[in-house]
Simulated assay, not measured.
Amino acid sequence: MVTVKHLSSSMNAKLIGTGDEVVVLAHGYGADQSFWDKVAPSLAQKHQVLVFDWNFSGAFNENNNKIDEKNQGFLEFDPIKYSSFEAFADDLVLLLDEMGIKSCIFVGHSMSGMIGCFASVKSPQLFKKLILIGASPRYLNSEDYEGGFEMQDIEQLLSTMEANFHAWASAFAPVAMAGQDPLLIEKFERSLKKMKPEVALAVAKLIFLGDNRHVLEHVDTPCTIVTTTNDLVVPSSVPYYMQKKMIKIKSTVEIIDVHGHFPHLTAHDQLLEVLGRALD
């Protein structure tokens, strides 16, 4: 098991830029820290920017295959340990602690948005603000909630992943990108296919079958919820649901006029404008 002092190298953490404020950029499912490459340099002109790779990512596996086993082990993905977003939140808090970060603005994409919510409840002193991009607390529809997917949709998705993960990745990438730039679709597809199929399936089950709505009412860190005009993964009603459920704080919803689930790739200039307002 990786000790706390080895967490930053295992997670390939990098701190760039200068400034008093630390901005943490946390990638989502199927991605890695390179998905922030269009955003991080601009933010680093005024802030310190932390990027890293979650242990389910292909980049994490590549990095840890290079690590000398004598010096540190592997923060191996254990589906039993990582059966909730709280385990990832624990890793995030430990990473910030190891790197000596006492306070930060957390920017989380997709599942990382909800991880940030859990982490802010666990350690509110660490988080000055949350910026949640394409986040959703639940993907399943119910009588009182529109998550975007019926159970049969999720079951079909998971069975397709299990049967042929690489074929599923090829089909899912253009959907998540909403048919944007073919090079970006290819980037996401490549990143998905770097994941270990068994890990990818376990994390997909955690995401698509989970219900994290309960954490929203406990968040008391100021929050900006960012969405696009047409995200095929997260319905447009979800950000406003989250805003309504965050009863302890005043949150805002920002809409970026672009299709797809990855505005930091497809509309980075507009996202930087939103981030600029939120950071100010």
Rank of each mutant, 00 (worst) to 15 (best):
P197A: 09
F56S: 01
A173E: 06
Q243K: 12
H218E: 14
D20G: 13
D37I: 06
G210I: 11
D231T: 05
D280R: 10
P197C: 07
H214G: 13
M111V: 15
V4L: 13
L216D: 07
D37F: 06
V258I: 14
L15C: 08
P222L: 02
A176G: 02
N141R: 10
F88W: 06
Y145A: 02
K66E: 13
A119S: 11
D37P: 00
I249T: 15
S191H: 00
K205Q: 14
N212G: 10
A13R: 10
A26W: 06
S42D: 15
S251L: 10
E155T: 09
A44R: 02
L7N: 08
Q48W: 02
N55E: 02
L126A: 04
E186V: 01
E76C: 02
I115W: 03
V24N: 03
G276A: 11
G30K: 01
S251R: 07
Q180N: 14
S136L: 02
K102W: 00
A204K: 05
P222R: 03
T221S: 08
I115Y: 02
H109T: 01
R190D: 11
L130N: 05
I131V: 13
G30T: 02
D78C: 01
V49N: 01
A59H: 03
V199F: 08
S57N: 02
K102D: 12
V39F: 07
Y139W: 12
N141S: 04
V121D: 00
E162A: 14
D181S: 12
V49E: 04
H218P: 00
V215M: 07
L132Y: 06
V93G: 08
L271R: 09
Y241G: 00
S120N: 05
V2N: 11
P124T: 03
L140R: 12
E186L: 03
K129G: 07
V199W: 08
K250N: 15
L271A: 12
A173P: 01
K194R: 15
G148H: 10
L275H: 05
N212W: 11
K81L: 10
A89W: 09
L184H: 04
L130P: 03
S191Q: 09
D220E: 12
D20I: 10
F262T: 07
E146I: 09
A171K: 10
M242G: 06
V238G: 04
V274M: 13
P41G: 07
V24H: 05
W54K: 00
D231S: 02
A171E: 10
Y240H: 05
N71S: 11
P174M: 02
K193V: 07
M99S: 07
P79R: 07
R138A: 08
P182G: 09
H6V: 06
N64H: 04
V93P: 05
T18Q: 13
A13N: 04
P222W: 02
S83R: 08
S159E: 15
V39I: 12
L15T: 06
L96T: 02
R277L: 11
E162L: 13
I255L: 14
Q72D: 12
K66D: 12
Q125N: 13
L132W: 00
V2T: 15
H218F: 12
L272Q: 10
H261P: 11
K128Q: 15
